[in-house]
Design a protein around this nucleic acid. Structure first.
Lengths: 149, 149
DNA sequence: ATTAAATACTTGAATTTTTCAACTAAATTC
DNA sequence: GAATTTAGTTGAAAAATTCAAGTATTTAAT
């Protein structure tokens, strides 16, 4: 097998650069981690702290502090769960949703550019490949599942 | 276009987890960044500080300090360039090479597992796709090129 | 019903990492 | 040969991470 690791390293690094560059909206500057937190809160349904921390593989104490700053920045809201009062349900404020949307737009714009260089068939192939990769990485017990970190 | 960002986010996150889990060899614990630095020094030919810092998109002052700790850990060596005495050429020590090799092995082992779940055709498709992605991301001026950070 | 154990999260103090502004030293340019 | 640029360093401040210990609530065990 040719140098797969190298190919993947380059790819993930590039996406990493993209991610980092997409974290400033207006006068709000987010760290990479913070933008990922917003993204996940937006995506998941009434997530608890644990859930988001786990999907992102962030230690819960670090996460707790990150959420505190996001709350202070008025991007995230914490609501005690009625089912279990230990649990905090996370949600985005209006401003948080706005920021998340802006970031998402910028990311998509970039992705559209990149995919725009490809033919329709290539595009389909690439998407199929990514799905395949994701599915097969999920099979591995070794690591990489957000669960079992 | 379906949710490309989501697919990619999941993929890069998984590789990120992998990366993080692969940084301990024996009693040497490396941070993710440090393992990437070793990887790049190993890969490039007589690289300078600037070169590695730039490919990884790390600020040169942060990088300078990271290299200092790697030198202290005896994994990296700094040699003043004969051509330009401002420049430091980076190289791995024997132990550094060993660590880098071990990490590489573990990464490859994991990748082999993941690719092992695929058919030969799928594997080829995935690799072709990653190359295609890399090539097309390189075309974009917007970001993601290590240069222009 | 009461106690023990587990879970969800927080806090404070120590460490590490990152960042910024200012610096040295060598090389280039004018 | 003075001014500028480039490569890298340093110190002090800010941000992020980690660890050990804490609270509060829920679940399980007796």
């Amino acid at each position: 097998m040719e140098n797969v690791r190298e190919l993947i390293q380059i790819m993930t690094r590039r996406f990493g650069f993209l991610d980092r560059n997409c974290c400033s909206v207006g006068d709000t500057d987010l760290s990479l981690v913070q933008s990922h937190i917003l993204y996940e809160i937006d995506r998941q349904h009434q997530p608890s702290m644990q859930q988001i921390a786990q999907t992102l593989g962030i230690d819960i104490t670090t996460f707790s502090k990150q959420i505190q700053s996001l709350v202070k920045m008025k991007l995230v809201k914490k609501t005690p769960s009625p089912d279990d009062r230990r649990v905090s349900i996370l949600s985005l404020t209006t401003e948080g949703t706005f920021i998340a949307t802006m970031i998402d737009q910028e990311m998509n714009q970039y992705l559209e550019e990149v995919f725009g260089y490809m033919s329709v068939e290539e595009r389909e192939m690439v998407l199929r490949s990514i799905k395949l990769l994701n599915a097969n990485m999920a099979k591995s017990k070794k690591c990489c599942n957000p669960i079992g970190e």
